[in-house]
Amino acid sequence: MKNHGRWYLFFFLTPILLWLFLMILLPHMDLLIMSFRAEDDFGEMVWSFANYLNFFEEPIYWATFARTALYSILVTVLTFIIALPVSFYITHVVAPKFSGFLMLLLLLPFWVSELVRVYGWMILLRESGVINHFLVQMGILDKPVEMLYNDATMILGLVYTSMLFMVVPLISVLESLDKSLIEAAYDLGANMWTILVRIIIPHSMPGIVSGSIVVFMLTLGNYLTPNLMGGKNSLWFTEQIYNQFIASFNWNQGSAFGFLLLILSSLIIWAGLKLTGQKLSKVVK
């Protein structure tokens, strides 16, 4: 009997282990090795920390990372601020028969690729775009203005792309929030703000943390939206990795940047968890 159990274990575990090893571990090992190789003065490839040192010595690299990280945090916060009322509305305000429909509406944009979504925004916002056309027609604007290619538009696009990944975990925690807790707080003299801060947010904390981690990582790793909607000012760290690989042919530097992105973003999440007193194990559960 015991042998049978072990056989089953191997049967089901082998594909997973193979997948992990061949598809994830092996390429990463290759990249890791690559990141520690650099050309010396004679054009020979040698073991070196140069690629990592470059990041800290060249202001543009770490400044770009800092900018990317700060904007990702901002996007995460904004996404949360918008997603919380939406999720609360779906779970506690609207009649249950409509909440499924509303969820479907939220999912709808994700049936098309990110590229199409971003181009959709560009059609709306460009100088000769739909919104400008209507604003001029209604006499609100004298002449069209360029709404694309600035940080605000880029953040708009990133928040839009991240919405679902915040709303879904929030809905699942808010569904378990007993409405009578809110009524009890209201009855004990609390106003809306106190109810939000003392009852709803503490209750939703696991969902907020898991949603925030996903949104933060997705935003940090996004390439298309900053590039297309942000335009000329939107150097994103992923673009720098891409440039190292594609424009500069420097795969070693690109791999080092990739690992730095992984390490630094993990550090930021760790710091975030520490600051809010959350535990990852609790969130994952």
Binding site: D178, S180, L181, E183, A184, A185, Y186, D187, L188, G189, A190, N191, R198, I199, P202, H203
Partner: peptide, 21 residues
Amino acid sequence: VVPNKRPVNLIFQHLALFPMM
């Protein structure tokens, strides 16, 4: 007069104690 301004308090059927406190 809204509930948080009334001089009455309600004990709920399932008590509604705040589990986060």
